[in-house]
Protein backbone atom coordinates (compact mmCIF):
# COMPACT_ATOMS: atom_id res chain seq x y z
CA UNK A 1 0.00 0.00 0.00
CA UNK A 2 1.46 3.36 -1.00
CA UNK A 3 1.35 5.70 1.98
CA UNK A 4 3.27 8.45 0.23
CA UNK A 5 0.19 10.71 0.32
CA UNK A 6 0.43 10.82 4.07
CA UNK A 7 3.59 12.84 3.78
CA UNK A 8 1.57 15.77 2.51
CA UNK A 9 -0.74 15.65 5.50
CA UNK A 10 2.00 15.12 8.06
CA UNK A 11 4.17 17.91 6.73
CA UNK A 12 1.17 20.23 6.78
CA UNK A 13 0.51 19.24 10.38
CA UNK A 14 4.11 19.83 11.37
CA UNK A 15 4.07 23.25 9.81
CA UNK A 16 0.76 24.33 11.30
CA UNK A 17 1.28 22.96 14.78
CA UNK A 18 4.82 24.27 15.05
CA UNK A 19 3.55 27.67 13.93
CA UNK A 20 0.79 27.55 16.54
CA UNK A 21 3.23 26.60 19.26
CA UNK A 22 5.62 29.28 18.08
CA UNK A 23 2.88 31.90 18.36
CA UNK A 24 1.89 30.65 21.80
CA UNK A 25 5.46 30.73 23.02
CA UNK A 26 6.01 34.24 21.61
CA UNK A 27 2.88 35.50 23.31
CA UNK A 28 3.90 33.83 26.55
CA UNK A 29 7.31 35.39 26.35
CA UNK A 30 5.79 38.77 25.73
CA UNK A 31 3.74 38.38 28.88
CA UNK A 32 6.27 36.82 31.18
CA UNK A 33 9.65 37.84 29.75
CA UNK A 34 10.89 34.41 30.73
CA UNK A 35 13.97 33.49 28.73
CA UNK A 36 13.25 29.78 28.96
CA UNK A 37 10.07 30.33 27.03
CA UNK A 38 12.15 32.15 24.45
CA UNK A 39 14.34 29.08 24.02
CA UNK A 40 11.30 26.87 23.69
CA UNK A 41 10.03 29.26 21.08
CA UNK A 42 13.31 28.94 19.24
CA UNK A 43 12.85 25.19 19.13
CA UNK A 44 9.39 25.63 17.67
CA UNK A 45 10.78 28.10 15.19
CA UNK A 46 13.21 25.44 14.00
CA UNK A 47 10.38 22.97 13.77
CA UNK A 48 8.46 25.46 11.72
CA UNK A 49 11.52 25.94 9.50
CA UNK A 50 11.68 22.21 9.03
CA UNK A 51 8.05 22.15 8.03
CA UNK A 52 8.60 24.90 5.50
CA UNK A 53 11.70 23.18 4.11
CA UNK A 54 9.89 19.89 3.79
CA UNK A 55 7.02 21.64 2.07
CA UNK A 56 9.44 23.10 -0.43
CA UNK A 57 11.05 19.74 -0.92
CA UNK A 58 7.67 18.20 -1.45
CA UNK A 59 6.38 20.52 -4.13
CA UNK A 60 9.46 22.25 -5.47
CA UNK A 61 12.17 19.63 -5.23
CA UNK A 62 14.16 21.29 -7.99
CA UNK A 63 14.50 24.32 -5.77
CA UNK A 64 15.45 22.46 -2.62
CA UNK A 65 15.31 18.70 -2.52
CA UNK A 66 14.64 18.10 1.13
CA UNK A 67 13.29 14.67 1.81
CA UNK A 68 12.47 12.56 4.75
CA UNK A 69 10.64 9.37 5.43
CA UNK A 70 7.21 8.73 6.76
CA UNK A 71 8.11 7.34 10.21
CA UNK A 72 10.17 10.43 11.01
CA UNK A 73 7.29 12.63 10.01
CA UNK A 74 4.91 10.62 12.16
CA UNK A 75 7.14 11.05 15.17
CA UNK A 76 7.44 14.77 14.55
CA UNK A 77 3.69 15.12 14.36
CA UNK A 78 3.19 13.15 17.57
CA UNK A 79 5.80 15.21 19.39
CA UNK A 80 4.21 18.45 18.30
CA UNK A 81 0.71 17.26 19.15
CA UNK A 82 1.79 16.25 22.63
CA UNK A 83 3.54 19.54 23.17
CA UNK A 84 0.57 21.43 21.90
CA UNK A 85 -1.95 19.70 24.13
CA UNK A 86 0.43 19.90 27.05
CA UNK A 87 0.56 23.64 26.52
CA UNK A 88 -3.20 23.75 26.33
CA UNK A 89 -3.51 21.90 29.63
CA UNK A 90 -1.24 24.47 31.27
Amino acid sequence: MDLEWMKDVFIAWITVFSLALLIISVVSYARTRNRRILLVGLAFLLFFGKGVALTIGLYWPSFWNVTTDLPSLLFDVLILLILYFATLRE
Partner: peptide, 27 residues
Protein backbone atom coordinates in the same frame (compact mmCIF):
# COMPACT_ATOMS: atom_id res chain seq x y z
CA UNK B 1 7.91 9.08 -7.14
CA UNK B 2 4.30 9.97 -7.62
CA UNK B 3 3.78 13.74 -7.60
CA UNK B 4 2.39 15.05 -4.39
CA UNK B 5 -1.00 16.63 -4.38
CA UNK B 6 -1.13 20.12 -2.86
CA UNK B 7 -4.76 19.52 -2.09
CA UNK B 8 -3.73 16.94 0.47
CA UNK B 9 -1.41 19.46 2.03
CA UNK B 10 -4.17 22.03 2.21
CA UNK B 11 -6.56 19.50 3.69
CA UNK B 12 -3.96 18.50 6.26
CA UNK B 13 -3.32 22.12 7.17
CA UNK B 14 -7.05 22.76 7.47
CA UNK B 15 -7.44 19.72 9.66
CA UNK B 16 -4.65 20.92 11.91
CA UNK B 17 -6.20 24.36 12.07
CA UNK B 18 -9.53 22.77 12.88
CA UNK B 19 -7.96 20.83 15.73
CA UNK B 20 -6.34 24.01 17.03
CA UNK B 21 -9.56 25.94 16.66
CA UNK B 22 -11.61 23.26 18.38
CA UNK B 23 -9.18 22.87 21.22
CA UNK B 24 -8.94 26.63 21.68
CA UNK B 25 -12.69 26.97 21.60
CA UNK B 26 -13.09 24.22 24.12
CA UNK B 27 -10.50 25.84 26.30
Amino acid sequence: PAPHDPLLYILGAMLALAIIFASMRYR
